[in-house]
């Protein structure tokens, strides 16, 4: 997933700051799918994601007057989304239920899906849908900060440098969190593969 062009965003931000509400609508339309994916994979709940996403854009609209362009709009809006989601998860605690979206039919044509089912033996051995379910459970066992890094790196395809800007931590911290999270996910899925009924 390529990040949107920065100069387009700059123009839209300037127009919004000049009072053109339609320009902000364009930013909303442009960033909704990407931010939805980010928040959804951090919360694993569609309704929470919807509410949070509305709040994120509302906050961004109120604060855009103070946006001076020191970072890109892309980084800025992602920072708002991640921080608001982390705050929400802290308040929510462990009381939640998974409300996952269905995979769309396009997954059957995904190159990585084909590779996984054709070549990767541990995946081929296990039922893929069951594996996905276990993966979601494993994701929710990670700490909120580790899940945020995994979501941004693996699912959203962001580079380490961008993640470090969004989270305002060093790249080393990002790599360390990613390494630890991958190890945890691996352990959990291996456990499942060895004891599929557990």
């Amino acid at each position: 997933m390529e990040p949107p062009r920065s100069d387009e965003d700059k123009q839209l931000v300037s127009r919004t700051q000049a009072g053109e509400a339609g320009a902000f609508d364009e930013l909303v339309v442009k960033y909704t799918p990407r931010l939805y994916g980010l928040i959804y994979n951090m919360t694993s709940n569609h309704e929470d994601t919807n509410d949070l996403l509305q709040d994120v854009f509302s906050k961004a609209y109120k604060s855009i007057g103070g946006f001076r362009g020191k970072s890109s709009f892309y980084t800025w809006i992602h920072s708002i989304a991640v921080n608001m989601t982390l705050n929400f998860l802290k308040k929510r605690g462990r009381r939640f239920h998974l409300s996952l979206d269905d995979m769309d039919a396009s997954v059957q044509n995904d190159k990585e899906f084909l590779e996984l089912t054709a070549t990767s033996s541990p995946v081929r051995e296990a039922d893929l849908s069951e594996l996905q379910r276990r993966l979601n459970e494993a994701m929710m066992k990670l700490s909120d900060e580790h899940r945020a890094v995994v979501t941004m790196f693996h699912i959203q395809g962001m580079p380490h440098a961008e993640i470090s800007k969004i989270l305002r931590v060093s790249e080393g911290t990002v790599r360390s969190r990613l390494f630890y999270a991958n190890r945890q996910l691996q352990n959990y899925l291996d456990e499942f593969r060895k004891n599929p009924v557990s």
Partner: peptide, 19 residues
Amino acid sequence: EFNEDDIGKLLRLKRHEQP
């Protein structure tokens, strides 16, 4: 055993979970 690449590929399939 699952390696990091498998984990990455499985996670990337979550992009297809859509509202």
